[in-house]
Simulated assay, not measured.
Amino acid sequence: MQRSGYGPDGIYRSLRPSLALPNNPNLSLVSFLFTSVSSSPNKTALIDADSSQTLSFSQLKTQVAKLAHSLLNFGINKNDIYLMLLFIRGMV
């Protein structure tokens, strides 16, 4: 069994199976991520590798909504281009 995702061409490819992504070009990433929140709100969405803290899909959706509203309060609107650079605790 292959232990690394690096192929002979030097390109890294995940060892996990490919995901089936929706074909709808008008489906946003947020809509795609949160389509099943109501059926499993407590399912784990993110895990912090250092602390093992988890965030459920319901909690993540709340945080995404708060961030979106904050950006609107800064005057950033749909179709604006915005770069966000985050420094995470413990990372250089």
Rank of each mutant, 00 (worst) to 15 (best):
L29N: 03
S70V: 04
I88M: 10
D50K: 15
L85Y: 05
L72T: 07
P22Y: 07
R3V: 04
S40Q: 11
M91W: 11
D50N: 15
T35Q: 14
T54V: 15
S4E: 00
R13V: 05
D50L: 14
F57T: 02
T35Y: 06
A20E: 13
G5F: 00
L72P: 00
I81M: 09
S51M: 06
F34V: 08
I11H: 10
L86W: 00
K43Q: 12
Q2I: 01
L83T: 07
Q63K: 15
Y6T: 12
K78H: 08
D50C: 14
H69C: 05
A45T: 06
R13D: 04
S56A: 05
T35L: 11
D9F: 03
G10H: 04
P25Y: 06
A65Y: 05
M91L: 12
S58N: 10
S38G: 01
T54A: 10
M84Q: 12
D80F: 03
M84P: 03
P17T: 14
I11Y: 02
S36V: 04
D50Y: 07
L86N: 10
S38Y: 03
L29P: 00
K66Y: 02
G5T: 03
M84G: 11
M1P: 02
L71I: 06
N42Y: 07
Q2R: 12
I11M: 09
F32L: 14
R16H: 09
T35V: 03
Q59V: 04
S14V: 02
L15A: 06
L15G: 15
A20V: 11
R89G: 01
D48K: 09
V37I: 10
